[in-house]
Write a protein that binds this DNA or RNA. Structure first.
Length: 667
RNA sequence: GCCCUCGUAGCUCAGUUAGGAUAGAGCACCGGUUUCCUAAACCGGGUGCCGCAAGUUCGAAUCUUGCCGGGGGCACCA
């Protein structure tokens, strides 16, 4: 695994420290805690700024006067600044570009291919749970987010020195497989399955639901099939295993196209044999308890929920006997389970009485599926962890009244395995925002169970269509592979007339098309919903992945033509020769790269990097049209600009690679 | 009903973490730039009660409260 060097601090940090030091020296030590060095907005004309308002309040002084005092008393000579001025309560610092340029260049020359990295993650392990599609269901654009955001975080954290483990928690077990088996048994088309496995399986699933409405025997058959599957019936197991294999193979094709990979792909089925112990331990420790299920009202909500607390303790004391009566209305073909359920339809089936736990790895042993025996023989009883006293409205259920397990049970087993196996400092769950409540419950549960590991839900919004959320049943769904093919085709249109080999053109179209799709997702705040727009997802210009790639190829082309491959060898390089606005603006952007990465990691927000790279590319494009490099007026200017271009090329390529986007050299 | 979340230009979005100076992009639309390193580019053109209202503050798109609107969730789905 790649080891990032420990960086003591980049130039911009040093310069900021000096600005802070200057103000503290004049205004006193007390200032240290009340000032912050900012990057001022473009129109101001300064390079750094320190607002004095917070300090003014503490010292009961006029911020304008203080700013003026600093500006008057300080002699900037010898510092990184050539001018320090006061304006409206701000102290504004103007870089002495001769000195600062050198610092920025030295940073880059010293760090080389590690420029932008840091050692802050050294010695720490992070597990990232991302992608997690369900088998027997095609990859839709809904699966895109977890996949690309997770992969970007993976790359970013590794660059910061963490040991990172990517785990694809495949949804490969659940009630829905009984239905698919039953459907395949009746209408299975071997040819269709071979041609497009997940779509064929989805068709079966959809047809099952269509027909089941009129033919109740289907549901019975589904339960029988699932029972057979969990009992280790040869035919059922073989079919399930085959569906699983075919699905995974298909996913692998998409992951290859996306450039996404995992250290582990452990499906839910992998954990089934541990479930019994997990539930028993929770009971033994007193954290979990037997409970009855309360009544539901017509909306499917628990009766009496939301009443004043303190009325009889935990709200697990509802009357027994009630069964949800709305399961069929809620059944939804979109919800075939897994982490991704919400992106393509939220409601899962609630007729889960046929669901069972026990399952070992493919083709392996099974147990009865019963996690723990109910001592009172009351099949209406469930095992749950009450959470009402922690201000969490619903308890976390670990075992259903028929003795079978749930998603959360497998989740506990999964976490236990991860902790034992990898000893992480942190586990990131890159899962849709609609599962926020679930994770709140789950995290409280593991705290109560004494599992000591920092777990973070990294939520993201849904991808919605303009007319509403995606729905397979209504035919409102976009398959990722279709989107990617279309994007690649469009990119191919542009590259068609270039003077390149067919092979090159194909490769470029692929890189550009995929970049367009990934960037469209990664450039937006992950917490917000995305309104799906074909045009935007495949954009080849403007704020888009291809725009960044294009900026890179322009830089790469200059480097290629210059014949230089190591800017350390440039004899006439003189950073202080770069004085044009386009040059200093570009350098200033390059200098921000390290801190942008840290911020992105701190908030788990790759879009910081995407937005930064776009801004950098814009600045570079302006530089490109205004400043000739290879035909620069003097050798010094030429070499210096060449170095600037090399730095830009590096940052764009590296930044894109952190986002999981590859760059062609030509396009 | 309760909880979470979002609301910024015609459209799609940055900016909210940490209050700070004149709120920025892209798309679309109109016009311009190619004897010169790739025009997937660049330049010019804005028409915003930053959902509404109050509060805190020297200062609010940013923090607090309420309301309105969209989305999501709310015990045996995942």
């Amino acid at each position: 695994m790649y080891n990032a060097p420990t960086m003591k601090g980049y130039a911009l940090e040093k310069i900021r420290d000096e600005a802070r030091g200057i103000v503290v020296a004049i205004l006193g030590q007390e200032a240290a805690e009340h000032i912050r060095v900012e990057l001022p907005p473009p129109g101001i004309g300064a390079d750094l700024a320190i607002p004095l308002f917070p300090l003014a309040k503490v010292l009961r002084r006029n911020p304008n006067e203080m700013a003026s005092e600093v500006a008057e008393k300080v002699d900037p000579s010898g510092s990184y600044f050539d001018q320090i001025s006061a304006a409206k309560g701000f102290v504004n610092f103007h870089f002495d570009w001769k000195q600062c340029n050198k610092l920025f260049f030295d940073d880059f020359l010293a760090a080389g291919d590690a420029y932008g990295s840091a050692g802050i993650g050294s010695g720490k392990t992070v597990v990232i749970d991302y992608s997690a599609p369900n088998i027997a269901k095609p990859f839709s654009v809904g699966h895109l987010r977890s996949t690309v955001i997770g992969q970007a975080l993976y790359n970013i954290l590794i660059f910061l020195g963490y040991t990172v483990i990517g785990d694809n928690h495949i949804g490969d077990w659940g009630t829905q497989f009984g239905k698919i088996l039953a459907a395949y048994d009746r209408w299975g088309d071997e040819k269709a399955l071979e041609e497009s496995p997940t779509r064929a399986l989805l068709d079966l699933y959809v047809r099952f639901h269509e027909d089941a409405a009129a033919d109740p025997s289907l549901e019975v058959a589904a339960r029988e099939w699932f029972a057979k599957l969990e009992a280790g019936d040869d035919k059922a197991t073989q079919l399930w295993s085959r569906f699983r294999e075919l699905s995974l193979r298909e996913f692998e094709r998409i992951y290859d196209l996306l450039g996404v990979s995992f250290d582990h792909t452990l499906g839910e089925s992998f954990y089934n044999e541990r479930l019994k112990d997990i539930v028993q331990q929770a009971l033994d420790s007193g954290v979990a308890q037997w409970s009855t299920v309360p009544d539901k009202d017509e909306e499917g909500r628990v009766a009496g929920k939301g009443r004043a607390s303190g009325e009889g303790g935990a709200d697990d004391d509802g009357s027994a006997g009630g069964k949800g009566g709305t399961s069929e209305e809620k059944a939804n073909v979109d919800a075939t389970g897994g982490r991704d359920s919400a992106n393509t339809g939220s409601r899962a089936e609630t007729d889960g009485r046929t669901e069972a736990g026990g399952r070992t790895e493919a083709g392996g042993r099974t147990n009865t599926g019963s996690c723990a025996e109910a001592e009172v023989g009351d099949d209406e009883k469930v095992i749950l962890i009450p959470l009402a006293k922690y201000d969490i409205s619903a308890p976390l259920i670990l075992q259903k009244s028929d003795g079978t397990s749930l998603y959360a049970t497998r989740e506990l087993a999964t976490l236990e395995h991860r902790v034992a196996e990898w000893k992480p400092h942190e586990v990131l769950y890159v899962v849709g925002a609609e599962q926020s409540l679930y994770f709140t419950q789950f995290f409280k549960a593991i705290e109560l169970l004494g599992i000591k590991v920092k777990c973070v839900h990294v939520p993201f919004g849904m991808i919605r269509l303009p007319e509403g959320r995606m729905s397979t049943r209504k035919g409102r769904v976009i398959f990722l592979e279709d989107l990617l093919s279309e994007a690649i085709e469009r990119a191919g249109e542009i590259v068609k007339d270039r003077d390149l080999s067919d092979e090159e053109k194909q490769e470029i179209a692929r890189l550009v098309g995929v970049a367009a799709v990934k960037y469209a997702d990664l450039s937006q705040d992950r917490t917000k919903d995305i309104v799906f727009d074909w045009k935007k997802m495949m954009a080849l210009e403007g704020n888009s992945g291809p725009y960044l790639q294009y900026a890179y190829t322009r830089a790469a082309s200059i480097m290629r033509k210059s014949g230089e491959d190591d800017i350390g060898d440039l004899e006439d390089l003189d950073p202080s020769a770069l004085t044009e606005d386009e040059e200093t603006a570009l350098l200033r952007e390059i200098a921000r790269f390290p801190e942008v990465i840290k911020q992105a990691a701190g908030d788990y927000k790759p879009n910081y990097i995407a937005n930064y790279l776009f801004s950098l590319s814009q600045v570079f494009n302006r530089f490109y049209v205004n400043c000739a490099v290879l035909k620069a007026e003097t050798p010094v200017l030429k070499d210096s600009r060449l170095a600037l271009v090399a730095m830009t090329a590096y940052v764009i390529r590296k930044g894109l690679s952190l986002l999981g986007i590859d760059c062609p050299e030509k396009m």
